[in-house]
Protein backbone atom coordinates (compact mmCIF):
# COMPACT_ATOMS: atom_id res chain seq x y z
CA UNK A 1 0.00 0.00 0.00
CA UNK A 2 2.63 2.48 1.09
CA UNK A 3 4.73 2.02 -2.00
CA UNK A 4 1.76 2.12 -4.35
CA UNK A 5 0.21 5.34 -3.15
CA UNK A 6 1.82 8.42 -1.82
CA UNK A 7 -0.18 11.50 -1.13
CA UNK A 8 1.04 15.06 -0.96
CA UNK A 9 1.56 16.19 2.62
CA UNK A 10 0.70 19.69 1.52
CA UNK A 11 -3.09 19.84 1.42
CA UNK A 12 -5.46 22.75 1.65
CA UNK A 13 -6.92 23.65 5.00
CA UNK A 14 -10.64 24.51 4.99
CA UNK A 15 -9.74 28.21 5.04
CA UNK A 16 -7.77 27.82 1.79
CA UNK A 17 -4.31 27.93 3.28
CA UNK A 18 -1.49 25.47 2.76
CA UNK A 19 -0.23 25.28 6.30
CA UNK A 20 2.80 23.15 5.39
CA UNK A 21 4.08 26.08 3.34
CA UNK A 22 3.43 28.45 6.21
CA UNK A 23 5.40 26.15 8.51
CA UNK A 24 8.23 26.16 5.96
CA UNK A 25 8.17 29.97 6.03
CA UNK A 26 8.34 29.80 9.82
CA UNK A 27 11.51 27.74 9.44
CA UNK A 28 12.88 30.44 7.12
CA UNK A 29 11.98 33.17 9.58
CA UNK A 30 13.96 31.42 12.32
CA UNK A 31 17.00 31.21 10.03
CA UNK A 32 20.01 33.47 9.99
CA UNK A 33 19.42 36.74 8.14
CA UNK A 34 20.69 37.11 4.58
CA UNK A 35 20.38 40.14 2.38
CA UNK A 36 20.95 41.28 -1.14
CA UNK A 37 21.37 44.71 -2.70
CA UNK A 38 21.37 45.48 -6.40
CA UNK A 39 23.65 48.29 -7.52
CA UNK A 40 23.90 49.91 -10.93
CA UNK A 41 26.97 47.84 -11.80
CA UNK A 42 26.52 44.75 -9.67
CA UNK A 43 24.93 43.01 -6.73
CA UNK A 44 26.02 42.14 -3.23
CA UNK A 45 24.78 39.13 -1.27
CA UNK A 46 25.66 39.05 2.42
CA UNK A 47 24.94 36.81 5.38
CA UNK A 48 26.16 36.02 8.83
CA UNK A 49 28.05 32.78 9.28
CA UNK A 50 27.18 31.51 12.73
CA UNK A 51 28.92 28.59 14.34
CA UNK A 52 27.80 27.07 17.60
CA UNK A 53 31.33 26.30 18.76
CA UNK A 54 34.74 27.87 18.29
CA UNK A 55 36.08 24.40 17.46
CA UNK A 56 34.62 24.53 13.93
CA UNK A 57 37.00 25.52 11.15
CA UNK A 58 35.17 28.55 9.71
CA UNK A 59 36.76 28.25 6.27
CA UNK A 60 35.13 24.83 5.73
CA UNK A 61 31.51 25.93 5.94
CA UNK A 62 30.01 28.27 3.47
CA UNK A 63 26.53 29.65 2.81
CA UNK A 64 26.98 31.54 -0.43
CA UNK A 65 27.25 29.26 -3.45
CA UNK A 66 28.33 29.69 -7.04
CA UNK A 67 25.76 28.26 -9.50
CA UNK A 68 27.08 29.44 -12.86
CA UNK A 69 30.00 31.78 -13.56
CA UNK A 70 27.61 34.74 -13.44
CA UNK A 71 25.03 33.54 -10.91
CA UNK A 72 25.30 32.83 -7.20
CA UNK A 73 22.92 32.38 -4.29
CA UNK A 74 22.47 32.51 -0.53
CA UNK A 75 19.73 31.23 1.80
CA UNK A 76 17.96 31.62 5.07
CA UNK A 77 16.45 28.55 6.71
CA UNK A 78 17.56 24.94 6.72
CA UNK A 79 21.14 24.36 5.59
CA UNK A 80 20.68 20.76 4.37
CA UNK A 81 17.69 21.72 2.22
CA UNK A 82 19.74 24.54 0.76
CA UNK A 83 22.55 22.21 -0.30
CA UNK A 84 20.06 20.00 -2.11
CA UNK A 85 18.75 23.04 -3.97
CA UNK A 86 22.28 24.19 -4.85
CA UNK A 87 22.98 20.75 -6.34
CA UNK A 88 19.73 20.83 -8.31
CA UNK A 89 20.31 24.40 -9.51
CA UNK A 90 23.80 23.54 -10.73
CA UNK A 91 22.53 20.38 -12.39
CA UNK A 92 19.56 21.98 -14.13
CA UNK A 93 21.66 24.87 -15.38
CA UNK A 94 23.60 22.28 -17.36
CA UNK A 95 21.03 19.64 -18.33
CA UNK A 96 18.31 22.16 -19.01
CA UNK A 97 20.41 24.81 -20.64
CA UNK A 98 24.16 24.61 -21.17
CA UNK A 99 24.08 21.16 -22.74
CA UNK A 100 21.41 22.41 -25.13
CA UNK A 101 22.53 25.95 -25.98
CA UNK A 102 26.22 25.77 -24.95
CA UNK A 103 25.75 28.89 -22.83
CA UNK A 104 24.67 29.41 -19.23
CA UNK A 105 21.05 30.24 -18.43
CA UNK A 106 20.02 33.86 -17.93
CA UNK A 107 19.26 34.66 -14.28
CA UNK A 108 15.50 34.64 -14.68
CA UNK A 109 15.53 31.25 -16.39
CA UNK A 110 17.61 29.73 -13.60
CA UNK A 111 15.38 31.34 -10.98
CA UNK A 112 12.32 29.84 -12.67
CA UNK A 113 13.97 26.41 -12.79
CA UNK A 114 14.81 26.55 -9.08
CA UNK A 115 11.34 27.90 -8.30
CA UNK A 116 9.84 24.96 -10.18
CA UNK A 117 11.83 22.51 -8.07
CA UNK A 118 10.51 24.22 -4.93
CA UNK A 119 6.93 24.38 -6.20
CA UNK A 120 6.95 20.69 -7.11
CA UNK A 121 7.80 19.90 -3.48
CA UNK A 122 4.52 21.53 -2.48
CA UNK A 123 2.39 19.35 -4.75
CA UNK A 124 4.16 15.98 -4.95
CA UNK A 125 3.48 12.92 -2.91
CA UNK A 126 5.77 11.85 -0.09
CA UNK A 127 7.82 15.03 0.14
CA UNK A 128 7.76 18.17 2.28
CA UNK A 129 8.40 21.71 1.07
CA UNK A 130 11.95 23.04 1.20
CA UNK A 131 12.58 24.97 4.42
CA UNK A 132 14.53 27.77 2.77
CA UNK A 133 14.15 31.09 1.06
CA UNK A 134 16.81 31.96 -1.50
CA UNK A 135 18.40 35.12 -2.78
CA UNK A 136 19.71 34.57 -6.29
CA UNK A 137 21.96 37.17 -7.87
CA UNK A 138 23.12 37.11 -11.46
CA UNK A 139 24.32 39.12 -14.40
CA UNK A 140 23.01 38.83 -17.96
CA UNK A 141 24.47 39.92 -21.24
CA UNK A 142 21.99 42.08 -23.12
CA UNK A 143 21.11 45.70 -23.45
CA UNK A 144 22.23 47.28 -20.22
CA UNK A 145 19.95 49.78 -18.48
CA UNK A 146 22.18 52.82 -19.01
CA UNK A 147 22.59 52.05 -22.74
CA UNK A 148 18.85 51.78 -23.09
CA UNK A 149 18.18 55.10 -21.39
CA UNK A 150 21.00 56.89 -23.14
CA UNK A 151 19.55 56.38 -26.64
CA UNK A 152 16.81 59.04 -27.01
CA UNK A 153 19.12 61.84 -25.85
CA UNK A 154 21.83 61.18 -28.45
CA UNK A 155 21.58 63.06 -31.77
CA UNK A 156 23.27 60.35 -33.79
CA UNK A 157 23.15 59.54 -37.47
CA UNK A 158 19.56 58.89 -38.57
CA UNK A 159 20.03 55.32 -39.75
CA UNK A 160 21.63 54.26 -36.51
CA UNK A 161 18.96 56.08 -34.57
CA UNK A 162 16.20 54.21 -36.41
CA UNK A 163 17.55 50.81 -35.49
CA UNK A 164 17.94 51.93 -31.90
CA UNK A 165 14.31 53.04 -31.92
CA UNK A 166 13.23 49.67 -33.31
CA UNK A 167 15.18 47.83 -30.68
CA UNK A 168 13.65 49.90 -27.96
CA UNK A 169 10.21 49.03 -29.25
CA UNK A 170 10.85 45.29 -29.24
CA UNK A 171 12.24 45.63 -25.74
CA UNK A 172 9.03 47.20 -24.56
CA UNK A 173 6.90 44.59 -26.25
CA UNK A 174 8.72 41.61 -24.80
CA UNK A 175 8.64 42.81 -21.22
CA UNK A 176 12.26 43.88 -21.24
CA UNK A 177 14.09 40.58 -21.00
CA UNK A 178 16.51 41.82 -23.64
CA UNK A 179 17.61 44.02 -20.80
CA UNK A 180 20.95 42.84 -19.54
CA UNK A 181 22.80 43.79 -16.39
CA UNK A 182 22.43 42.64 -12.80
CA UNK A 183 19.25 41.13 -11.33
CA UNK A 184 18.38 39.97 -7.82
CA UNK A 185 15.60 37.49 -7.04
CA UNK A 186 14.08 36.00 -3.91
CA UNK A 187 12.56 32.50 -4.08
CA UNK A 188 10.25 31.24 -1.33
CA UNK A 189 9.29 27.69 -0.24
CA UNK A 190 5.99 28.02 -2.10
CA UNK A 191 7.91 28.41 -5.34
CA UNK A 192 6.98 32.05 -5.81
CA UNK A 193 9.74 34.43 -6.75
CA UNK A 194 10.22 38.22 -6.80
CA UNK A 195 12.78 40.55 -8.35
CA UNK A 196 14.18 43.05 -5.85
CA UNK A 197 16.33 46.16 -5.79
CA UNK A 198 17.28 45.24 -2.23
CA UNK A 199 15.81 42.80 0.26
CA UNK A 200 16.48 40.60 3.23
CA UNK A 201 15.26 37.15 4.35
CA UNK A 202 15.46 35.27 7.64
CA UNK A 203 15.13 36.14 11.30
CA UNK A 204 15.58 39.92 11.13
CA UNK A 205 14.25 40.35 7.58
CA UNK A 206 11.64 42.94 8.58
CA UNK A 207 13.99 45.26 10.43
CA UNK A 208 16.71 44.77 7.81
CA UNK A 209 14.28 45.70 5.05
CA UNK A 210 13.24 48.83 6.92
CA UNK A 211 16.91 49.72 7.23
CA UNK A 212 17.50 49.05 3.51
CA UNK A 213 14.51 51.18 2.53
CA UNK A 214 16.15 54.09 4.31
CA UNK A 215 19.64 53.48 2.93
CA UNK A 216 18.88 52.40 -0.65
CA UNK A 217 19.22 54.97 -3.42
CA UNK A 218 18.85 54.62 -7.18
CA UNK A 219 22.05 54.35 -9.18
CA UNK A 220 24.02 52.93 -6.26
CA UNK A 221 27.62 51.87 -6.96
CA UNK A 222 28.69 48.33 -6.05
CA UNK A 223 31.21 49.58 -3.47
CA UNK A 224 28.46 51.58 -1.74
CA UNK A 225 26.18 48.56 -1.86
CA UNK A 226 28.76 46.42 -0.06
CA UNK A 227 29.04 49.18 2.52
CA UNK A 228 25.27 49.33 3.03
CA UNK A 229 25.09 45.54 3.19
CA UNK A 230 27.59 45.46 6.04
CA UNK A 231 25.81 48.31 7.85
CA UNK A 232 22.53 46.44 7.57
CA UNK A 233 24.09 43.24 8.78
CA UNK A 234 25.65 45.08 11.69
CA UNK A 235 22.20 46.11 12.94
CA UNK A 236 21.04 42.52 13.15
CA UNK A 237 24.15 40.49 13.81
CA UNK A 238 24.40 38.80 17.17
CA UNK A 239 28.05 37.85 17.48
CA UNK A 240 31.28 39.53 16.54
CA UNK A 241 31.63 40.92 12.99
CA UNK A 242 34.80 39.94 11.12
CA UNK A 243 36.03 38.25 7.96
CA UNK A 244 35.33 34.88 9.54
CA UNK A 245 31.74 35.53 10.61
CA UNK A 246 30.48 37.49 7.61
CA UNK A 247 30.12 36.03 4.16
CA UNK A 248 29.82 38.19 1.06
CA UNK A 249 29.27 37.32 -2.57
CA UNK A 250 29.29 39.90 -5.32
CA UNK A 251 28.22 40.19 -8.92
CA UNK A 252 30.67 42.62 -10.46
CA UNK A 253 32.91 43.09 -13.46
CA UNK A 254 34.36 39.92 -15.05
CA UNK A 255 37.01 38.53 -12.70
CA UNK A 256 39.54 37.50 -15.31
CA UNK A 257 42.11 36.61 -12.66
CA UNK A 258 39.86 33.69 -11.68
CA UNK A 259 40.01 32.14 -15.15
CA UNK A 260 43.21 30.31 -14.27
CA UNK A 261 44.75 31.20 -17.62
CA UNK A 262 45.37 34.25 -19.73
CA UNK A 263 46.04 35.17 -23.33
CA UNK A 264 42.84 33.70 -24.75
CA UNK A 265 41.04 36.35 -26.73
CA UNK A 266 37.41 36.86 -25.81
CA UNK A 267 37.64 34.74 -22.66
CA UNK A 268 35.71 36.32 -19.82
CA UNK A 269 36.12 35.53 -16.15
CA UNK A 270 33.21 34.83 -13.79
CA UNK A 271 31.18 37.85 -12.65
CA UNK A 272 30.00 36.17 -9.45
CA UNK A 273 32.66 35.65 -6.82
CA UNK A 274 32.90 35.41 -3.07
CA UNK A 275 34.96 37.93 -1.15
CA UNK A 276 37.86 36.50 0.84
CA UNK A 277 37.91 37.03 4.64
CA UNK A 278 40.72 39.54 4.05
CA UNK A 279 38.62 41.57 1.59
CA UNK A 280 35.72 41.56 4.06
CA UNK A 281 38.03 42.72 6.86
CA UNK A 282 39.12 45.60 4.63
CA UNK A 283 35.52 46.66 4.11
CA UNK A 284 34.81 46.32 7.82
CA UNK A 285 37.71 48.56 8.86
CA UNK A 286 36.33 51.26 6.53
CA UNK A 287 32.83 50.95 7.98
Amino acid sequence: MADRYSFSLTTFSPSGKLVQIEYALNAVNQGVTSLGIKAANGIVLATEKKSSTPLIDPASSSKISLITPNIGMVYSGMGPDYRVLVDKARKVSHTGYKRIYNEYPPTRILVQDVARVMQEATQSGGVRPYGVSLLIAGYDEGIEPEQQNAKPAGAEETAVDDSAEDRKKTTGKTGGILKGGPSLYQVDPSGSYFPWKATAIGKSATSAKTFLEKRYTEGLELEDAVHIALLTLKETIEGEMNGETVEIGIVGPPANHLLGYEGVEGAQGPRFRKLSPQEIEDYLTNL
Binding site: R99, I100, Y101, N102, E103, P106, I109, Q112, T174, G175, I177, L178
Partner: peptide, 19 residues
Protein backbone atom coordinates in the same frame (compact mmCIF):
# COMPACT_ATOMS: atom_id res chain seq x y z
CA UNK B 1 7.88 32.02 -24.89
CA UNK B 2 10.19 31.03 -22.03
CA UNK B 3 12.83 33.68 -22.54
CA UNK B 4 10.71 36.44 -24.09
CA UNK B 5 13.32 37.06 -26.74
CA UNK B 6 14.26 35.81 -30.19
CA UNK B 7 16.90 33.13 -30.43
CA UNK B 8 20.31 34.33 -31.64
CA UNK B 9 21.77 32.51 -34.67
CA UNK B 10 24.75 31.27 -32.62
CA UNK B 11 22.46 29.94 -29.90
CA UNK B 12 20.21 28.39 -32.53
CA UNK B 13 23.23 26.67 -34.10
CA UNK B 14 24.06 25.10 -30.72
CA UNK B 15 20.43 24.01 -30.36
CA UNK B 16 20.58 22.37 -33.79
CA UNK B 17 23.84 20.65 -32.85
CA UNK B 18 22.60 19.24 -29.53
CA UNK B 19 19.26 18.22 -31.03
Amino acid sequence: LREERDIAPKTFAQLVSSS
